[in-house]
Amino acid sequence: MSEVSNPPQDAVVEPTLALKSRSKVIAVTSGKGGVGKTFVSANLASALAKRGLRVLVLDADLGLANLDVVLNLYPKITLHDVFTGKSKLEDAIYKAPGGFSVLLAGSGMVEYSRLAPEVRDDFLRIMESLVPNYDIVLLDTGAGISDVVLFAVSMASEVLLVATPEPTALTDAYATIKVLGAQQKRQRIRIVINQVARTGDGTAITTQLQQVLDRFVNKDSEHPLKLIHMGDIPSDPAVRQAIMKRQLLAQSDPGCPAALSITQLASKVESAVIKHGA
């Protein structure tokens, strides 16, 4: 007597919001927390700035991101003050040590983790006015697939997914990729593998993820998802040292392997996103 029916087409989270000049916006995300997403966002921003680009990093985790800790920057005015009308947007944008701009959410933003429609509208409005001032905007999103993360990702043309070779991180990365494909009809997700033991591991991991996607997701999909391996960041004691000193790699150890890999990543991101998107 029981029957199981097909799910209806309505999506709980709207797939893509109309943000003009979305092409400059990259969402940096991860399936699992603690894989170095914020570390990658900050250091990638600094490497892109070094290439002469005007870069903004926005804490899109609404206060749960550790961007302030990574950058050792504790500004008085945050996105929270802009949302509540206490401050002007331009006063909430700070210059980070790496020569890029940063807009932090502030701890008061935690209460916005329930993404009310007003918050979405405010967020979109803020993005509309910010994006034209920069060559590239990185959204440091939260980990996982909460509605805040999906909303932040929906404002970006490109997704840069950070994972580590750890099985749990890969499983969560895979789940995130599936959701982004299904809910936002994404066809391209860029992958960075952090903390690899050997160069080349990230390429193999990305190929592996792609094969599983092809078998289980792409086979009857009208929007086949393609993963693009953007680079590996090697396990490097210099990273830990930089984080402990609350510095960017470019400040603490610009010649270390991890820093060099991020420089390469920046060049790939620039040519893939900016030149491609223009």
């Binding site: 029916s5 499983t171 592996q208």
Partner: peptide, 28 residues
């Protein structure tokens, strides 16, 4: 009437088969 209809769960979870393929090969 006198029936059960349940919407199919949205497939977000990673199945055992997917995990098997993800980790079953040379990588691990």
């Amino acid at each position: 009437r006198n029936r059960v209809f349940i919407e199919e769960q949205r497939g977000v979870a990673v199945s055992a088969d997917e995990k098997g393929m993800l980790f079953g090969h040379h990588l691990f």
